[in-house]
Amino acid sequence: MLELRLVQGSLLKKVLEAIKELVTDANFDCSATGFSLQAMDSSHVALVALLLRSEGFEHYRCDRNLSMGMNLGNVSKMLRCAGSDDIITIKADDGSDTVTFMFESPNQDKIADFEMKLMDIDSEHLGIPDAEYQAIVRMPSGEFARICKDLSSIGDTVIISVTKEGVKFSTAGDIGTANIVCRQNKTVDKPEEATVIEMQEPVSLTFALRYLNSFTKATPLSETVSISLSSDLPVVVEYKIADMGYVRYYLAPKIEE
């Protein structure tokens, strides 16, 4: 028996919007720790890892570990029927091939339940080792989204270079080139507006902009994003979900031929 009640149901709506472009079908894993997902995109270039910790739910009952295969487009269709202030409860019985999403309006005058068929998904679960990153950049998530969007109108790939002075995003295409430098800027009024660079050594890596643009669908989840870079390692783009967990995207770098 599984019953997860999330008062801030809009979080779940935002989570689905953040991952459904990248991943078509995925297993949602439920355990005492929380509600999680790990899935690769169809070309196995990027990986998304989601965690919503059990403590973040108003009510969290998960009698045994459960893996529920879902088509994310279909989940998104169901969750779009929930109001933005609705409380969302996810329910499933042991051995059942369906999951139920229950939506309650804040004043309890409207209650809806949507039952969705589960599917069998053969997914590879990858072990992500802890790594020391050469550089970690934390910046406003809206700024990062803007940069990825702007650069993708010029080129297909971006070179992200971190030095002590700042982080540089560069691209080149048929019509020309573009460089955007964000300097470290800790002296802002609000901490979420800061650009902070923790650097062990300078690093420069190339990534496909198409994927970074998909990652920025998570922007509504967090005011800030952190980008962790190391040579010859996938970049980690992390959006923290307040008090609950995170959505992390891993993207394999492009390697010079």
């Binding site: 196995h44 270039v45 590879e124 679960h125 190339t206």
Partner: peptide
């Protein structure tokens, strides 16, 4: 833009 590597080359199957 170089050759695109895949994520499974970096992370082991758990």
């Amino acid at each position: 833009g170089g050759k695109q590597s895949i994520i499974t080359n970096f992370f082991k199957k758990a």
